[in-house]
Design a protein around this nucleic acid. Structure first.
Length: 161
DNA sequence: ACACGGATACTA
DNA sequence: AGTATCCGTGTC
């Protein structure tokens, strides 16, 4: 179950790959909504995004999941980790799920359709994106309130400006 | 705090 | 060719 994600807009978002990568812009053109966009970050961590189209073109980065099934397999891939460090974090969850570059361009929705049902009645909190250098102020990180598998807790309400 | 390590897209 | 950047994690 996805418990944390971030939105990236293909147009007007300085943090989106489409700004600096022709290959990303071509990916958006060539694929339909629901396609997985997977890339390697810092030379070692696979990032799983899902392409969106329609109202807004862009990507949804999956940042954390809560294991509902397949826990032993995830722990095996993650070297026996448990709790937040098992699947809390974009690089951690791809390792737990065995997602790599060969899933780039695959149809994410075929296998993940059940997850959307779980999200329908969820208590979602919008917060600033994290881990990026540009356009951090956009409140485009979405987490399940009080969920223990979220990678980084939601910022305190006090520091706005 | 810092090391780790590769794809992508620049410059020349 | 060389350089800059990158949506992170583990270990110190």
């Amino acid at each position: 179950m996805v418990v944390e994600c971030e939105a990236y807009a293909a147009v007007g978002d300085p943090a989106c790959h489409t700004l600096t990568r022709p290959s990303a812009r071509e990916f958006v053109r060539r694929h339909r909504a629901g396609t997985a966009y997977v890339y390697l970050n810092y030379g070692m961590h696979w990032m799983l995004n899902v392409l969106t189209k329609g109202e807004v073109e862009g990507f949804v980065l999956i940042r954390a999941i809560e294991p509902l099934r397949g826990l032993p397999a995830m722990q095996r891939r993650r070297g026996g980790k448990s709790g937040r460090t098992l699947t809390g974090g974009p690089g951690r969850l791809t390792e737990a799920l065995g997602v790599t570059g060969r899933h780039h361009g695959a149809d994410f929705c075929l296998s993940a359709r059940r997850c959307f049902l779980a999200g329908a009645a969820a208590d979602v909190v919008a917060d600033g994106r994290i881990g990026i250098s540009r356009a951090r102020e956009l409140p485009w990180r979405f987490t399940l309130r009080h969920n223990l598998h979220v990678s980084v807790p939601v910022k305190k309400e006090s520091r706005r400006r």
